[in-house]
Amino acid sequence: MAKQKKERKKADPNAWLVTYGDMITLVLCFFVLLMGEPAQDSARMQLLSAAFGGLGPLSGGMTLDQGNLALMGARLETLPSENRQSQLGRARGLAQQLMRDDQSRLVRDVQEDPERGLVITLAGDVLFAPDSVQVDIERNRVMLQQLATLLNSPDLMGMTYRIEGHTDSTPPEQISRRFAERFPTNWEVSTARATNVLHYLVDYGAPEYQFQVMGESSRKPLLPGKDPESMAYNRRVEIVVLTNGHL
């Protein structure tokens, strides 16, 4: 017993400094990582912060190795974007099938715009008379019903749509005085046409809460010419299945 007491007295009273020094070194490493890593790497910084929770007196065994957990987090962050791209791809296939089956030639084109999303172009000269904003429903009922079914399909659940009206450069007063009294400029014409298309799509079952409406007037012509063919081509309504950046 006396020997054990003697050995205990010989213990180094400064041994605690080793543990203290380890902790200080870890804290120093933490701040080096904090200053050296890009600020935008938030996932990695969260892992580093969580790891230092192990310095408390009642926990331990933490690690600074980001391992598979960080990779899984990065994967989860990309899932919404990948899912939306998959939805756009399915919608494009369905819309192109509609265009192939379209006897009225209402659906003129289906294209994927990298800036906006999936664009379904409807021919304005098929939808409307030149001096009208009312949809020629007898001619277009079947295709509008099919478009409404497409936009209400489970493949596009949660997507946002924008209906954009476009006119040619002819001012309303050159069409008729009566038409100009109702629609002073092509802004009113394009907005009214887009809104009327929306009404029919909603009547046929498309989800109204997923839509936006925009009138573009004549500011985005597809063809620069003033000939009748170019002007007719520029009169159109576009249904855009929007990407994340344009919601």
Rank of each mutant, 00 (worst) to 15 (best):
S169N: 12
N140K: 01
A192G: 04
T160E: 12
A95K: 00
D102R: 02
G124P: 07
R141Q: 11
Q145F: 03
E173N: 09
E173A: 11
Q111R: 15
D131V: 02
L156N: 06
P172N: 02
M157L: 12
Q111V: 15
R139H: 10
D131F: 00
T170A: 07
E188H: 10
S190P: 07
S86R: 15
P184D: 09
P184A: 09
R105G: 12
Q134R: 10
R92T: 13
Q111S: 15
F128G: 06
L122A: 04
R177H: 09
F183K: 01
L151E: 02
Q174V: 05
R162T: 13
P171G: 03
L151P: 05
G158I: 03
A129G: 07
L106G: 05
Q85K: 14
S132K: 00
R108M: 12
L198Y: 07
D136R: 14
T121E: 11
R162M: 14
M143Q: 11
Q87S: 14
A180W: 01
I175T: 09
Q97S: 13
R116W: 15
L156F: 02
R139N: 12
S86L: 15
Q97A: 13
G117R: 02
R178C: 06
V142Y: 08
D102I: 05
P171K: 03
V197P: 06
N152Q: 09
G158Y: 01
D125R: 11
S190H: 04
A91K: 00
T167F: 03
S176M: 05
V133E: 05
L106E: 04
Q134D: 11
Q103T: 13
T160V: 13
N186Y: 02
S176R: 03
E112W: 05
G158T: 04
R182L: 08
Q85S: 14
V142M: 10
W187P: 00
Q103S: 12
Q87R: 15
L198F: 11
S190E: 05
R193K: 12
I137S: 07
V126C: 10
I163L: 14
A129R: 09
V126Q: 11
H199Q: 15
L118R: 04
R108Y: 11
L118M: 10
Q174Y: 07
V197F: 01
Q174M: 08
R193I: 06
V133L: 02
Q103E: 14
L94G: 02
L122C: 06
S104I: 07
A123P: 06
M159S: 13
A123G: 13
F179E: 08
L98Q: 04
L147I: 09
